[in-house]
């Protein structure tokens, strides 16, 4: 079973994402901020990491860069409430970029594609 880490500062949003991915049949772990996420990555291997871009302290883009350095094989999906980051995606070492939506269909499809 593929392992996914959800990095999201807003608790309710994190809960929502985790539930959706768990329902989709993945093993899901979570971190409320970048620092926690990096700690978890030290001890455990994840197949995919979803990173919220807007976070206090180290933001999602930065975190993605760090993860890419350490875990070359892990897939990274960036999540955002905004749509304007899309253009800059290429410069960031993320595998996908998804604008948050209520149904998370796009997220689930992308995760499945990246892990499949």
């Amino acid at each position: 079973m593929a392992k996914i880490l959800v990095v999201e500062d807003e608790e309710n949003m994190r809960e929502l994402i985790m539930e959706e991915l768990t329902d989709a049949g993945y093993e899901v772990d979570d971190a409320p901020n970048a620092e926690e996420a990096l700690k978890k990555l030290e001890s455990c291997d994840y197949d995919l990491i979803t990173v919220d871009i807007e976070m206090p302290g180290m933001n999602g883009l930065e975190l993605a860069g760090k993860i890419r350095e350490k875990k070359k094989n892990a897939k990274i999906v960036l999540l955002t409430a905004y749509s304007h980051y899309k253009n800059d995606l290429a410069s960031w070492a993320a595998d996908a970029y998804i604008v948050k939506s209520m149904d998370f269909t796009e997220l689930k499809d992308t995760v499945e594609r990246l892990l499949g």
Partner: peptide, 21 residues
């Protein structure tokens, strides 16, 4: 407007998501 939208969007997404669930 963008900021207001963003500020509103997060709770609305969460609300929408949980309502669907």
């Amino acid at each position: 407007s963008a900021r207001v939208a963003h500020e509103l969007r997060n709770p609305i997404t969460v609300i929408g998501g949980f309502v669907r669930r």
